[in-house]
C-alpha cells in the first residue's frame, strides 16, 4: 500500500484514453512534474504511471503570498488488455503531459483455403 504523506498527497492524474487504427493512446496531465520525475512501469499486465512535482526552484528570499498549488504525487494503475503489445509501448513527456502509445497486436487474418 502507498504511504501517504500529508505534505504531498497522492492524486490521480486526469487522463484521456483514445484509440487510433493501430494504437491505444493514453494522455495523463501531470503539471509541475519535471521530466525525470515522470515514470512508467509495466509489471505483468499492470501499467503504473507516477510523478512527483518539483520542489520550488525559487530563491529563499521569496515568500508565498497566495497558494492554490501544492506539492503532490501522481499515481495511477491501469490494466492492459491482451491486445496491447507490451514490448512496443512508447512514452513521451512534454509540458506536463505524459503521452503513452500502446500499439495493438495485429489481428491474425483468416487464412483462406482453396477447396479442391
Amino acid at each position: 500500500m502507498l504511504t501517504q504523506n500529508p505534505e504531498s498527497p497522492v492524486l490521480f492524474p486526469p487522463v484521456d484514453i483514445f484509440e487510433t487504427e493501430h494504437e491505444v493512446v493514453l494522455e495523463a496531465e501531470m503539471a509541475g512534474v519535471p521530466k525525470e520525475g515522470a515514470q512508467l512501469a509495466i509489471e505483468g499486465d499492470e501499467l503504473t504511471i507516477t510523478g512527483n512535482t518539483a520542489e520550488s526552484d525559487l530563491p529563499k528570499e521569496y515568500t508565498p503570498l497566495y497558494a492554490e498549488r501544492r506539492p503532490r504525487q501522481y499515481r495511477r494503475v491501469f490494466v492492459l488488455g491482451a491486445e496491447v503489445q507490451k514490448d512496443k509501448i512508447r512514452a513521451h513527456y512534454e509540458n506536463g503531459l505524459l503521452r503513452i502509445n500502446l500499439p495493438k497486436a495485429e489481428k491474425p487474418q483468416p487464412k483462406k483455403i482453396a477447396i479442391e
Partner: peptide
C-alpha cells in the same frame, strides 16, 4: 482528428 477509432476515457479539460 487523432481519435479516429473512438474515445475510452476523457478526464482532461
Amino acid at each position: 482528428e487523432k481519435r479516429e477509432k473512438g474515445v475510452i476515457r476523457t478526464e482532461r479539460f
